[in-house]
Amino acid sequence: MTQASNTAMLAPPPRRRGWLPAGLGPATPALVLLTLFFVVPVVSLLLRSVLEPSPGLGNYAELLGSSTYLRVFLNTFLVSGLVTTVSLLIGFPVAWTLAIMPGRWARIVFAILLLSMWTNLLARTYAWMVLLQRTGIVNKTLINLGLIDQPLTLVNNLVGVTIGMVYIMLPFVILPLYGVIRRIDPSILQAAALCGATKGQALRRILLPLAAPGMAAGGLMVFVMSLGYFVTPALLGGTNNMMLAELIAQFVQSLVNWGMGSAAAFVLLVATLALYAVQLRLFGTSQMGGR
């Protein structure tokens, strides 16, 4: 593996080499790795979805014929969409501020961001579980401040999942967006100001479009990650906003029904890749970060 990646890294710039398409060469290590240790094992497991308990499409019929499972599917995409939207809405202003605020302050915020990521995921999730309870600090503080009379239900529901997941996903939005905004040439915006553009216009017409590749990359990462997430929703969500990954985990680990588990995983894979294809069709590659 080391050998392969080294030679690929040292390879000359893209040039047509026999049967390899131009410029595909450097992707070889990744392709080999994923084919061997992802495609081969996963496909052989997914085959069980049409073989167990008996050959046929029985598992898929059961999965897609049940309103409960459809709800779980829908819910998975809704929660992931919500988490992505909230993360972007919060992440953009923070990345923007980080890119332009005085260096010393930016370093402190960065340090806190990294600290939050470094703290164990499970520990953070349990911390939120206790913080957000009806008897937890957040509710107690709000009641003491006189903002509410009755404790709010902040956990074991959609609110809890969103808070917990946004907390985990924020760095995945902020870091790429920060990189993109840092690279924007300030003189473009100065030019806009000279031409009489207001701040709102400059934001809408210049800054947001220029930051779009970063938003797309971060948003895609968060959305896709959320789809397959399981620990945080299981601990902070209620059972009625169960996500697909948790259902699959139950099929695989608790009920040991691999036919149904792989069928559900396959449906999730196909649905997500279809969504990705639709996004490419609608927005073209530029929206995905290409130039």
Partner: peptide, 12 residues
Amino acid sequence: FLTPMILPVVVL
């Protein structure tokens, strides 16, 4: 290249 992100880890 992104598909390993989508697939719930327990399946992998």
